[in-house]
Each structure stands twice: as structure tokens, then as C-alpha cells.
Design a binder for these strands. Structure first.
Lengths: 147, 147
DNA sequence: CACCAACTATTAGTTTACTAATAAAATTTG
DNA sequence: CAAATTTTATTAGTAAACTAATAGTTGGTG
């Protein structure tokens, strides 16, 4: 891209778009009376798909930091949605599980998240999705490559 | 887009990409010894382009909330980079200006931000940029339309 | 075996985002 | 003009991201 006056725009567009998505999802969760933040949903989603996972493993797959995961798991535990169990064979680790209440919350939240995904994607096509992935991966990798 | 197993991916890709960009920029600013966060940079960039702007106006153009702007301006004022002056004719408002130190910091940070933009965009083309804008605007507007 | 390095999770401190409530000032309306 | 509404900015509280430091545990190596 040559140096146009709008060269600032791509950071900004990504930033405002992700904020818009997060806010829309949070609003729907609130309206549905589901006591979950977006990031809390991200964690229970991953725990549900990989019961017994450790916190560091969760941090890795969600691209969150270990301290952030610690705090979100604290909140989820306090709400009674997630349970920490000592890992057999490694006393440093916890294995994470959804409680019955956690499962039920997950089940209630899932269709709302799916709906927001649908709304956001609108009538964009599969070809659009491939473009999207190509562009995002390209930007991402441009930073991974150099250092 | 039909319901593939990767349908979760687009939220996630946007989120991880913006994090990557922010972290890369923050790292370069730190390495250059510039005492600015990314969001602080966003504000002084806008103040520099529109000297005397108000906080609410800044909030609008940056898509930040008024309380967030209040706090970031507090920090910038504490660092001596920005000055609040009472607005003539409206005692609720402040007009915001960069101090000499603020100008100098802005001048030092600018090329670093430009470099990060260049690195992130890599060898993507002008046509890619148009695709990018189309996709992002589409997702964004899909949420704006239906409330 | 003892030491050293790596790993897992936590704590602490700073920054930003969002909501809700509030103070003060300006504008509109009856 | 007086009252109600709107606007501008702030404060307070909760949540999340990042860094740095630390405790406790594990595994490897001399």
C-alpha cells in the first residue's frame, strides 16, 4: 500500500470492529440474563471442549496471559461455573472442569454467541472468508516473522 | 458463510491480530525510550491534528468513552505532554493542547508508528486494502444496522 | 544426591474499557 | 424568566491485559 492519507485506518478499523463485536455480544448476554463476560465465555468454551485442561494450556489456546487466566478462572470459580481440581502427578497444575451450573450456562450462552457470529458475518461469502483469513493472517505473520 | 467447524475463527482472528499489532507497537515505543502507551499515542495524535479539541470530541473520533479519555488525558497531563485550558465561552469544556514536550514526543513517536504500520501491511496491495475495508466495514455495519 | 533450570500458577501494579451515577454548566421549553 | 433537559467532564467500581517478581514443584545434570 502506498502512503495515502488513510494509512492510519487499518489499525483503527480492526480495533473498532472487534470492540463492536464484543459490545454486541456482551449486550445480548446481559439481555438474556446470563452472568458472563465475553472473555469468561471464551474460557468456558475452551474448558467445555477440553475438559481437564490446565490454566497454562488455556492461556496458550486463548492467547491470554497466565495471570489473566488466573483471574478469570477465579471469577468463574466464585460464580460456581468452573472447578479447579489438583492434577494427578503434578502438584503445580490444576485440571479445570465445568460444574453442572457451568454446563448449563454454557448451553444457554452458546446459541447467543452463534447468533452474534451470524449477524456479524451477514451475507459475506465463503470466498470472503478466505480473503479475510488471508489478510488477517498476513498482518499477523508480518509481526511474527520479524522478531 | 455456512456452518463450518472454524466458524468461531473470525472473532478470534480479529482479536489476536489487533493484540499483535498493539504489542508490537508498544514494544517499539518502549525500545525507543518513549514513555507512551498505544492509547496515549492515539490521543496525542488526534490532539496534534486538531489542537484545542475537547475531550468529548476526542472520545468521539477515537471511539473511546468519555471516562477513558478523562483518565488518559490525566496521565498525559501528569507527564507534561498535554495541557488542559478552560474553553472560552463554555466553562464545562477544556481545550486540549500539546506542550512543547508533547510535540517532541509526538515527533519521536510518529516514525515508529509509521514503521509498524508498514511492517504490518507488508506487501499487501491497494486492492487488498479495499478488500480489507469492505470486509471490516461490512462486519461493523452488520452490528450498527440491527441496533 | 544436590544443584540448576524450567514450569505452573499467583500476586502486585499500571493501564484501558465499560457502566452507572453525579456535578456543574448550558440550552431548550413552557 | 423558571424549570426541565442536555451536555461536558468526572468519580467509582468491576473486568481484562500486560509486565515483573515470586512461591512452589518438577526434571535434568554434574
Amino acid at each position: 500500500m502506498t502512503h495515502h492519507s488513510d494509512q492510519r485506518a487499518y489499525f483503527f478499523k480492526i480495533d473498532t470492529t472487534i470492540k463492536k463485536i464484543r459490545n454486541a455480544l456482551q449486550k445480548r448476554l446481559n439481555e438474556a440474563g446470563i452472568d458472563l463476560t465475553v472473555d469468561q465465555w471464551v474460557l468456558i468454551d475452551h474448558i467445555s471442549r477440553d475438559e481437564g485442561t490446565s490454566q497454562n494450556s488455556l492461556a496458550e489456546v486463548t492467547y491470554k496471559d497466565p495471570p489473566t487466566v488466573t483471574r478469570i478462572v477465579d471469577l468463574l470459580e466464585k460464580k460456581g461455573l468452573v472447578e479447579r481440581r489438583m492434577a494427578a502427578g503434578d502438584r503445580r497444575k490444576f485440571n479445570l472442569f465445568l460444574t453442572a451450573k457451568g454446563e448449563s450456562t454454557y448451553t444457554k450462552a452458546f446459541p447467543i454467541v452463534a447468533e452474534i457470529r451470524r449477524i456479524g458475518w451477514g451475507d459475506l461469502s465463503e470466498a470472503d472468508y478466505q480473503q479475510f483469513v488471508r489478510l488477517m493472517d498476513s498482518i499477523y505473520n508480518n509481526f511474527s516473522d520479524k522478531e
